[in-house]
Computed example of a mutant assay.
Amino acid sequence: MSIYLDYNASAPIEPRVLECMIDIYQNYIGNADSRTHDYGDQARNIVENARKQVASLLGITSSEVFFTSGATESNNIAIQGLEAYAKESGRNHIITSSIEHKAVLETVKAMQHRGFEVDIVDPESSGRVDAKKILEKVKDNTLLVSLMHVNNETGIIQPVQELGTALEERNVFFHVDATQSCGKLVDELRSLKYTMLSFSAHKLRGPQGIGVLVLRKKNYKYPPAKAIMYGGQQEHGIRPGTIPVALVGGCGKACQIAELEYQSNEKKLRSIKKKLLELLDKSGITYSCNGDQNYCLDNTLNLCLHGVSSEALMISTKRYCSLSNGSACTSKSYSPSYVLMAMNIPVENIENSIRISWGPETDLEQFQIEFTNLLNVAKRLAQ
Protein backbone atom coordinates (compact mmCIF):
# COMPACT_ATOMS: atom_id res chain seq x y z
CA MET A 1 0.00 0.00 0.00
CA SER A 2 1.26 3.48 -0.88
CA ILE A 3 1.97 6.13 1.73
CA TYR A 4 -0.87 8.61 2.11
CA LEU A 5 0.25 12.17 1.29
CA ASP A 6 -3.05 13.95 0.64
CA TYR A 7 -3.93 15.24 4.10
CA ASN A 8 -5.14 18.58 2.76
CA ALA A 9 -7.93 16.70 0.98
CA SER A 10 -8.84 14.66 4.06
CA ALA A 11 -6.81 13.44 7.01
CA PRO A 12 -7.26 9.86 8.29
CA ILE A 13 -9.41 9.67 11.39
CA GLU A 14 -7.55 9.59 14.70
CA PRO A 15 -8.06 6.22 16.49
CA ARG A 16 -9.02 7.96 19.75
CA VAL A 17 -11.66 9.95 17.86
CA LEU A 18 -13.05 6.78 16.32
CA GLU A 19 -13.20 5.09 19.73
CA CYS A 20 -15.11 8.08 21.11
CA MET A 21 -17.60 7.94 18.24
CA ILE A 22 -18.14 4.19 18.50
CA ASP A 23 -18.92 4.59 22.20
CA ILE A 24 -21.49 7.28 21.40
CA TYR A 25 -23.09 5.28 18.60
CA GLN A 26 -23.38 2.21 20.84
CA ASN A 27 -24.36 3.77 24.15
CA TYR A 28 -26.00 7.17 23.58
CA ILE A 29 -29.03 6.83 21.36
CA GLY A 30 -30.97 9.99 22.13
CA ASN A 31 -31.71 13.12 20.16
CA ALA A 32 -29.82 16.05 21.69
CA ASP A 33 -32.93 18.22 21.38
CA SER A 34 -35.23 15.77 23.18
CA ARG A 35 -35.93 17.35 26.57
CA THR A 36 -38.35 14.85 28.10
CA HIS A 37 -36.03 11.96 29.02
CA ASP A 38 -32.50 11.04 30.13
CA TYR A 39 -31.45 9.80 26.70
CA GLY A 40 -31.90 13.30 25.29
CA ASP A 41 -30.06 14.80 28.27
CA GLN A 42 -27.12 12.44 27.76
CA ALA A 43 -26.88 13.26 24.07
CA ARG A 44 -27.13 16.96 24.78
CA ASN A 45 -24.32 16.70 27.34
CA ILE A 46 -22.07 15.16 24.68
CA VAL A 47 -22.84 17.98 22.26
CA GLU A 48 -22.23 20.70 24.83
CA ASN A 49 -18.99 19.07 25.96
CA ALA A 50 -17.82 19.00 22.33
CA ARG A 51 -18.76 22.65 22.00
CA LYS A 52 -16.49 23.41 24.97
CA GLN A 53 -13.65 21.37 23.42
CA VAL A 54 -13.87 23.34 20.16
CA ALA A 55 -14.03 26.61 22.09
CA SER A 56 -11.00 25.68 24.18
CA LEU A 57 -8.92 24.96 21.07
CA LEU A 58 -9.86 28.30 19.50
CA GLY A 59 -9.74 30.37 22.69
CA ILE A 60 -13.38 31.50 22.50
CA THR A 61 -16.58 30.90 24.46
CA SER A 62 -18.67 27.79 23.80
CA SER A 63 -21.72 29.94 23.01
CA GLU A 64 -19.87 31.15 19.90
CA VAL A 65 -19.57 27.62 18.45
CA PHE A 66 -22.20 26.33 15.98
CA PHE A 67 -22.05 22.87 14.42
CA THR A 68 -22.66 22.40 10.70
CA SER A 69 -22.05 19.66 8.13
CA GLY A 70 -18.63 21.09 7.27
CA ALA A 71 -16.73 24.16 6.17
CA THR A 72 -18.63 24.40 2.88
CA GLU A 73 -21.91 24.88 4.73
CA SER A 74 -20.28 27.17 7.29
CA ASN A 75 -18.85 29.35 4.51
CA ASN A 76 -22.26 29.55 2.86
CA ILE A 77 -23.97 30.62 6.08
CA ALA A 78 -21.26 33.20 6.80
CA ILE A 79 -21.71 34.80 3.38
CA GLN A 80 -25.31 34.14 2.32
CA GLY A 81 -26.57 34.57 5.87
CA LEU A 82 -25.73 38.28 5.76
CA GLU A 83 -28.06 39.00 2.83
CA ALA A 84 -30.99 40.32 4.89
CA TYR A 85 -28.72 42.56 6.94
CA ALA A 86 -27.07 43.85 3.77
CA LYS A 87 -30.44 44.91 2.38
CA GLU A 88 -31.40 46.63 5.63
CA SER A 89 -28.08 48.43 6.07
CA GLY A 90 -27.26 49.24 2.46
CA ARG A 91 -23.88 47.57 2.82
CA ASN A 92 -23.71 45.17 -0.11
CA HIS A 93 -20.00 45.08 -1.01
CA ILE A 94 -17.99 41.86 -0.53
CA ILE A 95 -14.22 41.44 -0.92
CA THR A 96 -12.45 38.11 -1.30
CA SER A 97 -9.45 36.63 -3.12
CA SER A 98 -9.14 34.61 -6.31
CA ILE A 99 -7.46 31.71 -4.48
CA GLU A 100 -10.28 30.94 -2.06
CA HIS A 101 -11.87 27.51 -1.87
CA LYS A 102 -14.78 27.09 -4.28
CA ALA A 103 -17.15 27.11 -1.30
CA VAL A 104 -16.32 30.80 -0.89
CA LEU A 105 -15.69 31.80 -4.51
CA GLU A 106 -18.86 30.25 -5.91
CA THR A 107 -20.96 31.61 -3.05
CA VAL A 108 -19.60 35.13 -3.54
CA LYS A 109 -20.29 34.89 -7.27
CA ALA A 110 -23.86 33.80 -6.50
CA MET A 111 -24.24 36.87 -4.28
CA GLN A 112 -23.01 39.00 -7.18
CA HIS A 113 -25.85 37.62 -9.31
CA ARG A 114 -28.23 38.76 -6.56
CA GLY A 115 -27.05 42.34 -6.89
CA PHE A 116 -24.07 42.44 -4.53
CA GLU A 117 -20.95 44.34 -5.48
CA VAL A 118 -17.92 42.05 -5.43
CA ASP A 119 -14.16 42.61 -5.60
CA ILE A 120 -11.87 39.61 -6.07
CA VAL A 121 -8.19 40.31 -5.36
CA ASP A 122 -5.39 38.26 -6.94
CA PRO A 123 -2.46 37.03 -4.87
CA GLU A 124 1.17 37.97 -5.39
CA SER A 125 3.56 35.49 -7.00
CA SER A 126 4.41 34.42 -3.44
CA GLY A 127 0.93 32.93 -3.08
CA ARG A 128 0.00 35.51 -0.46
CA VAL A 129 -2.64 38.14 -0.92
CA ASP A 130 -1.34 41.64 -0.22
CA ALA A 131 -3.34 42.92 2.76
CA LYS A 132 -2.96 46.49 1.50
CA LYS A 133 -4.71 45.58 -1.76
CA ILE A 134 -7.62 44.18 0.23
CA LEU A 135 -7.84 47.26 2.43
CA GLU A 136 -7.64 49.59 -0.57
CA LYS A 137 -10.92 48.04 -1.78
CA VAL A 138 -12.76 48.74 1.49
CA LYS A 139 -15.33 51.54 1.25
CA ASP A 140 -18.38 52.83 3.10
CA ASN A 141 -20.71 50.09 1.85
CA THR A 142 -18.29 47.21 2.41
CA LEU A 143 -20.10 44.46 4.29
CA LEU A 144 -17.65 41.58 4.41
CA VAL A 145 -14.11 40.46 3.69
CA SER A 146 -13.71 36.68 3.38
CA LEU A 147 -10.20 35.23 3.31
CA MET A 148 -8.80 31.78 4.01
CA HIS A 149 -6.13 31.45 6.67
CA VAL A 150 -4.05 28.89 4.76
CA ASN A 151 -4.44 28.04 1.09
CA ASN A 152 -5.42 24.41 0.59
CA GLU A 153 -3.33 23.95 -2.59
CA THR A 154 -0.10 25.73 -1.67
CA GLY A 155 -0.13 25.77 2.12
CA ILE A 156 0.67 29.50 2.04
CA ILE A 157 -0.43 31.40 5.14
CA GLN A 158 -2.45 34.52 4.36
CA PRO A 159 -2.18 37.89 6.20
CA VAL A 160 -5.28 37.40 8.33
CA GLN A 161 -3.70 38.89 11.44
CA GLU A 162 -3.04 42.23 9.77
CA LEU A 163 -6.45 42.26 8.10
CA GLY A 164 -8.33 41.28 11.24
CA THR A 165 -7.03 44.26 13.19
CA ALA A 166 -7.58 46.74 10.35
CA LEU A 167 -11.08 45.52 9.50
CA GLU A 168 -12.19 45.65 13.12
CA GLU A 169 -11.18 49.31 13.21
CA ARG A 170 -13.22 49.94 10.05
CA ASN A 171 -16.25 48.01 11.37
CA VAL A 172 -16.21 45.55 8.46
CA PHE A 173 -17.21 41.91 9.03
CA PHE A 174 -14.29 39.50 8.59
CA HIS A 175 -14.82 35.83 7.76
CA VAL A 176 -11.85 33.44 7.95
CA ASP A 177 -11.88 29.98 6.40
CA ALA A 178 -9.57 28.15 8.83
CA THR A 179 -10.06 24.68 7.37
CA GLN A 180 -6.35 24.05 6.78
CA SER A 181 -5.05 25.90 9.85
CA CYS A 182 -7.38 24.74 12.62
CA GLY A 183 -5.48 22.46 14.98
CA LYS A 184 -2.14 23.55 13.47
CA LEU A 185 -1.74 27.33 13.81
CA VAL A 186 -3.41 27.30 17.21
CA ASP A 187 -1.68 30.30 18.79
CA GLU A 188 -2.29 32.47 15.74
CA LEU A 189 -5.97 31.58 15.63
CA ARG A 190 -6.40 32.35 19.31
CA SER A 191 -5.03 35.86 18.86
CA LEU A 192 -6.82 36.55 15.57
CA LYS A 193 -9.55 39.18 15.31
CA TYR A 194 -12.48 37.99 13.18
CA THR A 195 -16.25 38.03 13.02
CA MET A 196 -16.84 34.52 11.69
CA LEU A 197 -14.66 31.45 11.22
CA SER A 198 -15.17 28.09 9.50
CA PHE A 199 -13.52 24.69 9.60
CA SER A 200 -14.15 21.00 8.89
CA ALA A 201 -13.34 18.32 11.44
CA HIS A 202 -11.89 15.85 8.94
CA LYS A 203 -8.95 18.12 8.16
CA LEU A 204 -7.72 17.75 11.76
CA ARG A 205 -8.29 13.98 11.99
CA GLY A 206 -11.92 14.16 13.03
CA PRO A 207 -14.85 12.61 11.14
CA GLN A 208 -16.12 13.70 7.76
CA GLY A 209 -19.57 15.30 7.66
CA ILE A 210 -19.19 17.70 10.58
CA GLY A 211 -17.79 21.20 10.82
CA VAL A 212 -18.02 24.43 12.76
CA LEU A 213 -19.09 27.99 12.18
CA VAL A 214 -17.84 30.41 14.83
CA LEU A 215 -19.86 33.57 15.36
CA ARG A 216 -17.93 35.95 17.61
CA LYS A 217 -19.96 38.14 19.94
CA LYS A 218 -19.40 41.88 20.03
CA ASN A 219 -21.06 43.85 22.81
CA TYR A 220 -22.90 40.62 23.69
CA LYS A 221 -24.40 40.39 20.19
CA TYR A 222 -23.76 37.86 17.44
CA PRO A 223 -23.01 39.04 13.90
CA PRO A 224 -26.28 39.30 11.91
CA ALA A 225 -25.85 36.02 9.99
CA LYS A 226 -29.11 34.13 9.53
CA ALA A 227 -29.89 30.53 8.63
CA ILE A 228 -29.96 29.74 4.91
CA MET A 229 -32.08 26.59 5.35
CA TYR A 230 -35.45 26.09 7.01
CA GLY A 231 -36.43 23.48 9.57
CA GLY A 232 -36.09 23.36 13.33
CA GLN A 233 -34.40 25.70 15.77
CA GLN A 234 -31.31 23.56 16.36
CA GLU A 235 -28.04 25.43 16.90
CA HIS A 236 -30.03 28.48 18.04
CA GLY A 237 -31.71 28.66 14.65
CA ILE A 238 -28.47 29.01 12.70
CA ARG A 239 -28.45 25.47 11.32
CA PRO A 240 -31.67 23.38 11.36
CA GLY A 241 -31.63 19.59 11.43
CA THR A 242 -31.05 16.82 13.94
CA ILE A 243 -27.64 17.21 15.53
CA PRO A 244 -25.42 14.19 14.65
CA VAL A 245 -24.27 13.49 18.19
CA ALA A 246 -21.49 11.01 17.39
CA LEU A 247 -20.03 13.27 14.67
CA VAL A 248 -20.15 16.25 17.02
CA GLY A 249 -18.50 14.19 19.75
CA GLY A 250 -15.79 13.15 17.30
CA CYS A 251 -15.23 16.76 16.27
CA GLY A 252 -14.84 17.78 19.89
CA LYS A 253 -12.44 14.92 20.61
CA ALA A 254 -10.30 15.84 17.57
CA CYS A 255 -10.11 19.43 18.84
CA GLN A 256 -9.18 18.26 22.33
CA ILE A 257 -6.35 16.10 20.96
CA ALA A 258 -5.14 18.92 18.71
CA GLU A 259 -5.02 21.31 21.65
CA LEU A 260 -2.94 18.88 23.68
CA GLU A 261 -0.56 17.86 20.90
CA TYR A 262 -0.25 20.69 18.37
CA GLN A 263 3.19 21.76 19.56
CA SER A 264 4.71 18.29 19.34
CA ASN A 265 2.87 17.71 16.06
CA GLU A 266 4.47 20.81 14.58
CA LYS A 267 7.94 19.39 15.20
CA LYS A 268 7.00 16.13 13.45
CA LEU A 269 5.52 17.95 10.47
CA ARG A 270 8.61 20.13 10.16
CA SER A 271 10.96 17.11 10.26
CA ILE A 272 9.13 15.50 7.34
CA LYS A 273 9.32 18.68 5.28
CA LYS A 274 13.02 18.95 6.01
CA LYS A 275 13.56 15.36 4.84
CA LEU A 276 11.46 15.98 1.72
CA LEU A 277 13.61 18.94 0.68
CA GLU A 278 16.81 17.00 1.43
CA LEU A 279 15.68 14.16 -0.83
CA LEU A 280 14.80 16.62 -3.57
CA ASP A 281 18.20 18.30 -3.40
CA LYS A 282 20.01 14.94 -3.52
CA SER A 283 17.92 13.68 -6.44
CA GLY A 284 19.39 16.09 -8.97
CA ILE A 285 15.91 16.88 -10.32
CA THR A 286 15.27 20.47 -11.31
CA TYR A 287 12.40 21.70 -9.13
CA SER A 288 10.76 24.78 -7.73
CA CYS A 289 8.32 25.36 -4.91
CA ASN A 290 5.07 27.12 -5.70
CA GLY A 291 4.66 29.81 -3.07
CA ASP A 292 7.00 31.55 -0.65
CA GLN A 293 8.18 28.88 1.78
CA ASN A 294 8.76 31.51 4.47
CA TYR A 295 4.97 31.65 4.78
CA CYS A 296 4.16 27.98 4.22
CA LEU A 297 2.50 25.54 6.60
CA ASP A 298 4.81 22.76 7.79
CA ASN A 299 2.62 19.96 6.42
CA THR A 300 2.31 21.10 2.79
CA LEU A 301 4.46 21.56 -0.28
CA ASN A 302 3.23 22.46 -3.76
CA LEU A 303 6.08 21.29 -5.93
CA CYS A 304 6.95 21.70 -9.60
CA LEU A 305 9.21 18.95 -10.95
CA HIS A 306 10.35 20.58 -14.18
CA GLY A 307 9.75 18.48 -17.28
CA VAL A 308 7.65 15.90 -15.42
CA SER A 309 3.92 15.77 -16.11
CA SER A 310 2.04 15.63 -12.80
CA GLU A 311 -0.64 13.37 -14.31
CA ALA A 312 1.95 10.92 -15.64
CA LEU A 313 3.85 10.99 -12.36
CA MET A 314 0.78 10.32 -10.19
CA ILE A 315 -0.34 7.43 -12.39
CA SER A 316 3.15 5.94 -12.47
CA THR A 317 3.73 6.21 -8.70
CA LYS A 318 0.35 5.19 -7.29
CA ARG A 319 1.93 2.19 -5.59
CA TYR A 320 4.38 4.46 -3.79
CA CYS A 321 2.64 7.72 -2.91
CA SER A 322 -0.97 8.90 -2.80
CA LEU A 323 -0.96 12.61 -3.55
CA SER A 324 -2.71 15.13 -5.79
CA ASN A 325 -2.15 18.04 -8.14
CA GLY A 326 -4.83 20.33 -6.78
CA SER A 327 -7.90 20.69 -4.63
CA ALA A 328 -10.10 17.62 -4.25
CA CYS A 329 -13.16 19.77 -4.96
CA THR A 330 -11.92 20.33 -8.53
CA SER A 331 -10.19 16.99 -9.08
CA LYS A 332 -12.64 15.91 -11.80
CA SER A 333 -11.51 18.86 -13.89
CA TYR A 334 -8.14 18.52 -15.61
CA SER A 335 -7.85 22.24 -16.30
CA PRO A 336 -4.82 23.96 -14.76
CA SER A 337 -5.10 24.92 -11.09
CA TYR A 338 -6.89 28.25 -10.75
CA VAL A 339 -4.84 28.94 -7.61
CA LEU A 340 -1.50 28.55 -9.38
CA MET A 341 -2.79 30.47 -12.40
CA ALA A 342 -3.78 33.36 -10.14
CA MET A 343 -0.17 33.35 -8.88
CA ASN A 344 0.96 33.84 -12.52
CA ILE A 345 2.84 30.55 -12.61
CA PRO A 346 3.44 29.43 -16.23
CA VAL A 347 0.96 26.81 -17.45
CA GLU A 348 3.79 24.40 -18.25
CA ASN A 349 4.97 24.57 -14.64
CA ILE A 350 1.42 24.14 -13.36
CA GLU A 351 1.05 20.97 -15.40
CA ASN A 352 4.26 19.71 -13.78
CA SER A 353 3.15 20.51 -10.22
CA ILE A 354 1.99 18.21 -7.44
CA ARG A 355 0.65 18.90 -3.96
CA ILE A 356 2.13 16.87 -1.12
CA SER A 357 0.57 17.05 2.35
CA TRP A 358 1.19 14.92 5.41
CA GLY A 359 0.34 14.52 9.09
CA PRO A 360 2.12 14.08 12.42
CA GLU A 361 1.63 10.31 12.29
CA THR A 362 3.20 10.01 8.81
CA ASP A 363 6.04 7.53 9.22
CA LEU A 364 9.32 9.27 8.42
CA GLU A 365 11.13 6.08 7.41
CA GLN A 366 8.34 4.96 5.08
CA PHE A 367 8.11 8.48 3.68
CA GLN A 368 11.82 8.47 2.85
CA ILE A 369 11.55 5.13 1.03
CA GLU A 370 8.40 5.88 -0.96
CA PHE A 371 9.24 9.47 -1.85
CA THR A 372 12.64 8.29 -3.07
CA ASN A 373 10.81 5.79 -5.28
CA LEU A 374 8.67 8.63 -6.62
CA LEU A 375 11.73 10.73 -7.40
CA ASN A 376 13.35 7.83 -9.26
CA VAL A 377 10.25 7.54 -11.44
CA ALA A 378 10.25 11.29 -11.96
CA LYS A 379 13.84 11.17 -13.23
CA ARG A 380 12.88 8.55 -15.80
CA LEU A 381 9.85 10.55 -16.93
CA ALA A 382 11.99 13.66 -17.34
CA GLN A 383 14.44 11.97 -19.73
Rank of each mutant, 00 (worst) to 15 (best):
L260G: 06
M341Q: 15
S283T: 08
M21E: 11
G206R: 04
E48S: 12
E73H: 15
H306V: 01
T96V: 01
N376W: 02
V160P: 00
V186M: 07
S181W: 02
G183R: 03
H37W: 12
I369H: 12
P223V: 03
S126N: 03
L305F: 07
I120P: 11
T362M: 04
K274I: 02
Q263A: 12
G209V: 04
N265P: 02
I285L: 15
A103V: 09
G127Q: 04
A11F: 05
Y7I: 08
S333I: 12
C329H: 13
S200T: 07
K87G: 00
A84Y: 05
K318W: 13
T179S: 14
P15C: 05
G291D: 03
V160K: 00
K109W: 04
G70F: 05
P12E: 14
R190N: 13
K193Q: 04
L260K: 13
G291S: 06
N352P: 05
F367W: 05
V118Y: 12
N325C: 12
G252Q: 08
G206E: 00
I94L: 10
Y220I: 11
I285G: 00
L143V: 05
A342V: 07
L260Y: 02
R128E: 05
N349A: 13
V129I: 15
A227R: 07
L277W: 10
I3V: 15
D177K: 10
M343F: 01
A225P: 01
V308W: 03
V245K: 09
K137Y: 03
K137W: 03
A342C: 05
K132E: 14
I120K: 15
L301G: 10
V145T: 08
L135C: 03
I257D: 11
G237A: 02
G231M: 07
S335V: 06
I22A: 10
C20K: 09
K221M: 15
H149I: 00
E370F: 10
E14M: 09
E64Q: 15
F66Q: 09
F174Y: 13
L58I: 04
N219W: 02
K52Q: 11
I369W: 04
L105Y: 11
N171K: 09
K379S: 13
C251R: 03
K139F: 00
I369A: 12
E235T: 07
P336L: 10
